[in-house]
Design a protein around this nucleic acid. Sequence first.
DNA 1: TATTGATTAAGTAGTACTACTTAATTTTTA
DNA 2: TAAAAATTAAGTAGTACTACTTAATCAATA
Lengths: 219, 219
Amino acid sequence: MIEPTESNPLKVILADDHEIVRAGIRRLLSIDRRLKIIDEAENGQDLVDTVSYHKPDIVISDIMMPKLNGIDALKKIRELKLDCYVIMLTAYEDSFHLENALEAGADGYLSKDINAKELIEAILDVIKGERVFSKSVVRLVKKKSANSSELDATPVVITKREQEILDLVAKGKTSQYIAEKLFISVRTVESHRYNLMQKLDVSNVAELIRYSILKRTSS
Amino acid sequence: MIEPTESNPLKVILADDHEIVRAGIRRLLSIDRRLKIIDEAENGQDLVDTVSYHKPDIVISDIMMPKLNGIDALKKIRELKLDCYVIMLTAYEDSFHLENALEAGADGYLSKDINAKELIEAILDVIKGERVFSKSVVRLVKKKSANSSELDATPVVITKREQEILDLVAKGKTSQYIAEKLFISVRTVESHRYNLMQKLDVSNVAELIRYSILKRTSS
DNA sequence: TATTGATTAAGTAGTACTACTTAATTTTTA
DNA sequence: TAAAAATTAAGTAGTACTACTTAATCAATA
C-alpha cells in the first residue's frame, strides 16, 4: 500500500449497528483528508456485501451487530479473500473477544474509548502492515504472549457444568440460589464462578455476562 | 374462540431464535393433540410474516431475537390487527420486560422454566380470554398493581447520569473506577446504582446488564 | 488400569455490592 | 422565582462476590 494522500485517499468502510456510533467515527475521521469513508454497514451481512462490492483499503467494524456479528463477518471477508485491512472497534476489552478477533484475522483491536488522533494513527499503522491495539488491550496481549512462546491459541474450554452455572449467574441468580437449584455447595458454585472468570480472563460478573450473552448472539 | 378439539386444534406459531428452545416447546406441546404447531419463526421479522400468512390462534414468542425482538414483533402484530393471542415466553423475569410486553399487548408472560402442564394450561386459559403469568412473575405484577389503582403505567425514567453509570457498570467497571472516571464520590456512584436497581426492579448487576444490553438490542 | 479432566468442597481473607435513609446542592422547568 | 427533579454524598449494616489454595471423589479414556 502506498502512502495515502488527499488526492488518493484511503477507502474506508465503517460497520456498526448504531447510527450514533457511525456518526461518531465519521466525525473522528473527517479531520484527516487522507481517509475517505466510502460506505457504511449496519450489520455483518451488509458489511460483507459492501466490502465485496467496494473493495476498500480498510474496514473499521464493531463486534456486536445483528444478523452477522463483526467477527463472523471478518471471517467471511477472509474466506472470500477480499484484500483489506480490518480493525475491530469494540466495547469489549476482554481476551475472549480479542482472541476471537485475532484468530479471525483482525489487524487491530481498539477500544471505543479511542480519540481521533489515536484512531487515525492506528489506521495509518495498520496500512503499513502493523497490528494495533489500544492501550487497554495491550495488557491482555502481553499476558497471553508471556505464557505462550508465539501462538499458543489455547482454546477456552467451558465445561458443561460451568456453562450451566454461567447461565444462572447471567440471569442474576446468587451463588446461594444456584447451589440450592443444583444441589451443590455454595462453595462449589463459587469455585465454578472463579474458574469461569479465570478462563475468560475477566474479574466480575458483568464481564462474564457479556461473554455469555454475546456468545449466544454470535453462534 | 370455541373449545379446541383434536379434530379442530388450536393453530400455534412458535418464535425463538434457538432451534433447541423451539424443539423443547414442540416437545412440551406435543402431548396435547388439541394444539398444533403450524409454523415456527427464528426472529421477530419472520414471526410477523408467518403470523400474517397463517393467521394462527396463538403465538408463543421469545423476547430476545435477532432482527426484530419479540416485543417489537408483538407491536407490529397488533398494529396490523392480526387477530391472535400472544404469550411471551422468556428468561427475563423482571418488570421492565414484563411491562414492555404488557404494554405491547401480550396476553401472557411466562418464564422459560415452565413445564408442559403449566404451558398447556396457560394456553387454554389465554384462549378463554384470561391473562397468564408464571408464578415467578406474579410477584412483579402484584407489586405494581398494589401501587397503582388500575393501569398506572408509570414509565421508568433513567436520567442521563444514571445511563452513564449504567453503561459503565455494564462494562464491568467497579464503583471505584466509575467514581474516578466521573470525578464523583464512590458513595454517589453507589447511590446511582441503587436507584437504577430500584427503578428497574432488579437486585443485582447481572439483571441490570441484561436490561442495558437488551435495551440496546431492541432500539 | 493409570492418568487426565470434571466436579465437588472448604480454608482464609479481602473487596465490592446491596439495602435503605437522609439531606445538601445544583439544575431544570413550570 | 418557586417548585420539582437531578445530582451529589454519607451513615449504617449486612450480604455477596472475588482471590487463590488445596484436595478428595468420580468419570472418561488412553
